[in-house]
Computed example of a mutant assay.
Amino acid sequence: MEEIYAFQDEQPYEVLHKLLVAHHHVSVYLSDDEFDDLVFTNECLRYLAKRTLVNKKLDITNTLLSYHETVAATPSEELAGTVFIVDDTPESCAELSNKYGVCIVSRQNPAEASYLTEELARKEIRTANSYRYSTQGKVYVGWKAALNPRSKRWQATPMNSLVVIDNYMFGDKGDRLAIGQENILSLLDALLPSSLSVDFHLLLVTANEQAFLKSRNLHKLTQYLQGELKRPYAIQVGVITRDVSPEHRRALISNYYFGASHHGFACFKGHKTQWPNDLVVSGIFRNVEEEGFDVPWISMHDELRAVRIQRDKNRKLRNPDSGYDDPTHLVYGFCDNRLLELVP
């Protein structure tokens, strides 16, 4: 019951309902007798139980499994946006969060999970600046330098999946492909966790209007990223291409944050930026008690839904006889990113 009661003093029930009704189920760790008794005596639990009767999207279940066992037994594809709220020490919660890349909030110190409700980064990229830094004999440029020390804050945010959307990530001529690879590697190196006990899912979505990108390019790209990132866990990489859409989407979506870049992610050439840019990243429940609190969440879901539709469309365009993709609409590598399971 502690897991549910944790909300009672923090937020109005209406806000709790908004957070949970569309995207999470509630699990309570009690014996059946205790559960039945508390449904009638605990106001917060009774509120949630009533809501389940009128809205089938909200599921409340009772289990005697510990949350350690629950997290460990959760299928990989379901470890996308789940939030566990438990009565355990912040240290234990952080250890398990980092192990699986999921949000586990300690009721004893909920502030440790403030990344859910805060703005995580607001970075202005200026053409006059040099983005380079060195540590332990290594020199880093581009996003890795621009986000330092912000990357430390992001690396404290649990994650096991990432979707990067940018129509102009790899360009369509000259050295744009190489520049795109350089930029995406630098960005990922700044963001990906140092350790993880499950496979990391990475999905890149970009335009391919002139069929510039071929399967051979994407094969080299995925091999390059997997080789250069040097993480002690498997990285499943997928790429989806499409026609240039009227919306110039440049989004960064992880388990618990949504980010957007005004001029895209391929803005660096070495330590210099090619044009002014900015990057804003917010926890998905930022400003939860204010009007429009769910903007990051809605943006996240809108983008993920569009990506899922594009993936399914590309697969339908695949030649059933040859197995080859449509030249413009490629779906290469591992494209069943667990974040796409968050949307229908």
Rank of each mutant, 00 (worst) to 15 (best):
R286V: 01
C335Q: 00
T82S: 15
N42W: 01
H263K: 13
D302S: 15
F285E: 06
D172H: 13
L177G: 05
E119S: 14
N208H: 07
Y224D: 05
P75F: 10
E290R: 14
L38N: 06
L20D: 06
S92L: 09
A207P: 08
A145F: 08
H271Q: 12
S31M: 03
N62Q: 13
N167T: 02
R308I: 00
G137C: 07
T41F: 08
L147H: 05
D166N: 09
F7R: 05
Y29M: 13
V295N: 04
G264P: 12
D312S: 13
I253V: 14
V163W: 01
E34V: 03
P90N: 01
L196T: 03
Q181I: 08
S254L: 04
D326I: 02
F7K: 02
Q210E: 11
L339M: 03
P327H: 10
I184R: 04
P158Y: 03
V295M: 01
E91F: 13
E91T: 15
S151T: 10
I125S: 05
L192D: 04
V39W: 00
P246W: 06
G238P: 11
S134A: 15
Y100K: 13
S92R: 11
F334K: 10
H329K: 07
T135R: 12
I284K: 15
E118C: 10
F40V: 08
W297F: 13
A211F: 05
L120Y: 05
A190F: 01
P193N: 09
S151N: 15
L221Y: 06
A94T: 14
L204R: 10
F334Y: 12
N319P: 06
S27C: 14
A146I: 05
K230V: 07
Q236M: 11
Q136L: 07
L202F: 10
G142R: 08
N217C: 09
V163A: 11
K123T: 12
V139H: 08
Y168T: 06
R338F: 06
M169Q: 12
V244K: 15
G227A: 10
V205N: 02
S97Q: 09
S130I: 08
V280K: 09
V86G: 12
I85D: 01
E247V: 12
D59Q: 12
W143P: 11
T241N: 13
F84A: 11
F84E: 05
F84Y: 14
L45D: 03
